[in-house]
Design a protein around this nucleic acid. Structure first.
Ligand SMILES: [Mn+2]
Ligand SMILES: [Mn+2]
Ligand SMILES: [Mn+2]
Ligand SMILES: [Mn+2]
Lengths: 219, 219
DNA sequence: ATAGATAATTAGGCTTACCTAATTAAATTT
DNA sequence: AAATTTAATTAGGTAAGCCTAATTATCTAT
């Protein structure tokens, strides 16, 4: 029904819209999918005919409700597979994305249903990203970037806003993981670096770049 | 490196050769892959150039060692996934083939290694088919079709020679499963039907069609 | 050995998903 | 408001995998 390429386009549009909040441009898509802008224009016209997106010439694209449901389902599958890879196959959180990119396209509703059950209906993936339910519904999150917090704030690390291997590996190396309790001890005005304690023990200095990408929530 | 289509062609060639012991004809492949004979001729020429098979015009094809290794690896993956689906996700043995057909093409050596470990290095899949090791080596089997056995024979059901859903469902309905002990009580000359006992208890009458497809081995 | 049947190949096309180069439209600078 | 830069589209192709119809090769029966 939906081709591999279509699934990847819809997912990319979903993610870009999520990030920017705006209509998604040809160039943003071209960049994200590593495909030429000309090919994007072509493809986008085709899936607009199938009512998966709306396309405004020279403006950009938006998902229709139908397209959005497909995108969310792919994301659901991706995140469930990531949970499986980490919890059952002992992969590290920086090793699962590529494999999940392939597994997310396997087609079988019963498979995903059983996988979800096997995993105990997880609410979030190994990076803290929420897993939508079978109806495409997300639980609502109250997480915020640590950089928005002030001195004295105490919260739990529940996700990351950046998924690059280098960032994930940096966190692992720094002994920081989801679930850790973070308290803001001081903030350096000059470079916006944070002095924090992890689980009421270790003191750590985190750069602006890092605190921007750490998502925390009330305990 | 190897496309989805190539993988499926190589696997089909492997299986047809395994079944017939001969060079694999264009029409057999066309039949097995549900693709026109013309397309087979085309494709077969291409993968012969890549040294995955040898192709003799108007005769048929054979796997090279390289092609054989790829085919066996796909089969290994297929069977490991089937084991996973049955043992971890609680699918029935007649529900797993289609899903495994998709999963077998996921590319990641570490994934398969970890999956194998997660499953406890199974020797056979849910249908009793042997799972080759990472080097492509099969354990050797001493199974034979029940139809080759004589009255008085006692053995264990360790596999099936036919994988259709209808056959698998027939066995399930008849309460016959891998591991069951089968003893041949009598053989009717006229229609070659077998009277057997299952696990030294239930008496059962099995038609020739059925005993041809049951694989047994010494206990 | 030849006719007829069956199997395989060739020729010519199609669709999907991509590409580059050229052109046009939109946004920025000056 | 022009000029320039950047973004998007159009035009024209390509490669992978498939197809049908026509032709040729091989096998089987008489
Ligand atoms: Mn991911
Ligand atoms: Mn993730
Ligand atoms: Mn199977
Ligand atoms: Mn099997």
């Amino acid at each position: 029904m939906t081709s591999l390429a279509e699934e990847n386009y819809l997912k990319a549009i979903y993610k870009l819209h999520e990030k920017t909040g705006t209509i998604v441009s040809t160039s943003a898509l071209a960049d994200s999918l590593s495909v030429s802008a000309a090919s994007i224009t072509d493809f986008v016209k085709k899936i607009a005919l199938k009512k998966l997106i709306t396309y405004e010439k020279s403006k950009g694209v938006k998902l229709t409700e139908k397209g959005r449901q497909i995108a969310i389902n792919i994301i659901r599958k991706h995140r469930l597979w990531e949970v499986w890879l980490v919890t059952k196959l002992d992969f590290k959180w920086d090793e699962v994305h590529e494999i999940a990119e392939q597994l997310e396209h396997v087609v079988s509703d019963e498979l995903i249903e059983q996988l979800d059950r096997h995993l105990g209906y997880p609410k979030a993936d190994p990076h803290g990203d929420l897993i939508p339910d079978a109806k495409g519904q997300f639980a609502k999150s109250n997480s915020k970037p640590l950089i928005n917090c002030t001195v004295g704030y105490k919260g739990k690390l529940i996700g990351v806003a950046e998924h690059s291997n280098s960032f994930l590996q940096y966190l692992t190396k720094s002994n920081l993981k989801l679930g850790d309790e973070i308290a803001v001890v001081a903030i350096e005005d000059y470079d916006c670096s944070f002095e924090v304690t992890i689980n009421n023990k270790e003191k750590k200095l985190l750069s602006k770049e890092v605190v921007k990408n750490l998502l925390v929530a009330e305990i």
